[in-house]
Amino acid sequence: MRKFLKEPLVHFLFLGGLIFGYHYLVNTNSESENAIVIDDTEYDYLLSLWKNQWKREPNEQDIKAFLDQYLRQEVFYKEALVLGLDHNDIIVKRRLAQKMEAVSNDLNAMLNPPTDNDLREFYETNDSLFLLPPTYSFKQVLFTNQEPNWQTELQATQKALNDGQAIPTSRVLKLSIANEWENSPINEIAKAFGGEFASKLESLPLNQWAGPIESGFGQHLVFISEKRDSELADFETIKSYVEKEYEYQTELEMQEQVYQDLLEKYQVKITSNRVPESIKKSYQP
């Protein structure tokens, strides 16, 4: 049963039913499609909107004015529908689609908060979401592309360093960048050097000066002394984060599920030959 209650489409249809039912009840008095009826309910609604804005009772002139305004909008709206002006209007389409998506977003709020077991199950099946990043301890020496003989200098320095010599003074804190990095998570390294440099560290050998490795600053010699692989964070420590992530992922899934269910309902048929075959296939049920 719980499984059934979690089914997004069920909620969707249920909500749809409510909306439709409300519409049906409200519109029982309409005699024909062409009539615009202002009954007590409608009048009271328009009146309350007006009073809220003006903070007083309307006089006859005011009443005429707001009814005029309402009717004007209503007749143009109805006529526009009759003429089909709502069809294929990109703005109308987008508005309606957004409205519908908003309804599906609200579905999430109808679910009960997750239990500890739900969270643990989610944590175990989605461990990729809860990995601590890999960390590196490394040293780096920088050569900028503007240095006229950086290639030869780099090679000479690499040899000297591998022979156990110290980092040359002129390259200590070169461009202000620290030479030694201890237990630095990969994302911190990416922030300091750029993403490409960080991603190259993985393929480098341990305990020797390697390079040149390019970063946003220039060319580096890199000596990695320790690498710790990515590991799963402890459940209890990150429980509140797991909960946030659970809610977030459920919402995304729900959105996707509603989209997929509706997609099925409408059966996409791509007849254009200009759409690549592989894409066409992906829309087949």
Binding site: S128, L129, F130, L131, L132, P133, N183, P185, I186, N187, E188, S230, A233, T237, I238, Y241, E245
Partner: peptide, 23 residues
């Protein structure tokens, strides 16, 4: 998405990592 999450976890938990026994 995975890469991003690891980013977050660092920020959220690095404070607890100090003095971690297996460092």
């Amino acid at each position: 998405r995975i890469l991003f999450t690891t980013t977050v976890l660092v920020v959220v938990f690095s404070a607890c990592n100090h003095g971690n026994k297996d460092t």
